[in-house]
Amino acid sequence: MEPLLALVIGGLYAAALFMMLRRSIVKLVIGLMLLSNAANLLIFTAAGLTRGVPPLVPEGLTRPDGLSADPLPQALVLTAIVISFGVLAFAVVLIHRAYEAVGTDDLRRLRDTDT
């Protein structure tokens, strides 16, 4: 399972970079979404995949019986998903407002603040 996920993650990072290098601001935001998803999947995979053993504590015990999946990376991914959701919602509104204010979605023409 890990090699497959590793390829998927690599593909996501590559696609994200490709999209961010395009000139349209919509594609830029799609690139950012892919990037955060790639990072989330990476956390999930790098921490080790354990199949079919949820980290549940059986009744009467105070710790899981034997080997179980690590719940922490899932908590981390959950946190990261919520954060990226909020941030990307902001980014989508921002590109909409930027498009209204500037009148173009071409990144090459957003040069007023550069030096």
Binding site: L28, L32, L35, A38, A39, L42, I43, A46, L76, V87
Partner: peptide, 20 residues
């Protein structure tokens, strides 16, 4: 926003690998 989000993604990647 764009450059800081990229920084955050790199940070998150590094944290994930570190935990792994």
């Amino acid at each position: 926003v764009t450059l800081n989000l990229i920084a955050s993604a790199i940070f998150l990647t590094a944290v994930g690998l570190l935990y792994g």
